[in-house]
Amino acid sequence: MKQQLRRTMLYVPGNNPGMIKDAGIYGADCVMFDLEDSVSLNEKDAARFLVYEALTSLDLGDKEHLVRINSLESGLGLADLEAIVHTGKAVIRLPKTETPQDVLECEAQIARIEEAAGLPMGSTKMMAAVESAAGVLNAREIALASPRLIGIAIGAEDYVTDLKTTRSEDGVELLFARSAILLAARVAGIDAIDTVYSDVNNEEGLRKEVQLIRQLGFDGKSIINPRQIGVIHEIYTPTKKDIDHALAVLDAIQEAERKGSGVISLNGKMVDRPIVLRAQRVISLAKESGVLKEGVYAQD
């Protein structure tokens, strides 16, 4: 089974046909059609129809598609779910999740629609976005609320407003939330996705932020402009040095197994379980991102 990369999730306004038809060409790992904040109230229906048509008529390839729905309490979320779940082609991204109950309510509706539509039970995946102080403090319970969840994301703009602050360049105000969400994701065994970086013309700032979230452990980031994809993928792609080391670690394991040795060592250093796991992750990421093909580093 191919591991799904989620380094970049490209937001595409659900009411913009021009952007929807071209969303797949930029090489983002995931495309996320938005029915929520980027669509004004008087265009909600049109956007829902448009996204439904896009999912059912465009050649989506094997790219993961998500749809950010309106919340159930807005009165619009149910219609969104009815339309999108029926396609069987998109992960449902919940906005503004505050409690595990939010996830469960949505899941119950999804299950009902799946059953009515004759879709395999549990086939529709979900992703929760946490955008408030309450949501961050409930992150663990939210992440564990449903086996349908594939990831948990942080939405920073609403969150910092909730905290009575604003976003700063180094993101110190987000440190707790990012850490909390990341830990919750890891406890639940799902992906952690960072918030958008909205200054699309500031490549240096984006670079710094992506280096930070990668170091924290995030799997990827939501993005609002295709121009941000290159930088993020570059930072997330293992370097030749990382890959060479990982390959050496895996070779050492094979060597030890062949010799029947219980202790594995590489260049005189003991290779223990975390090192092996890290090496496996590097190789997996290198393969998925296309720089490692059949054991050969593919970039000159």
Partner: peptide
């Protein structure tokens, strides 16, 4: 250009 499609 900053148009992502043109850049692509």
């Amino acid at each position: 250009t900053t148009n992502p499609k043109e850049l692509l």
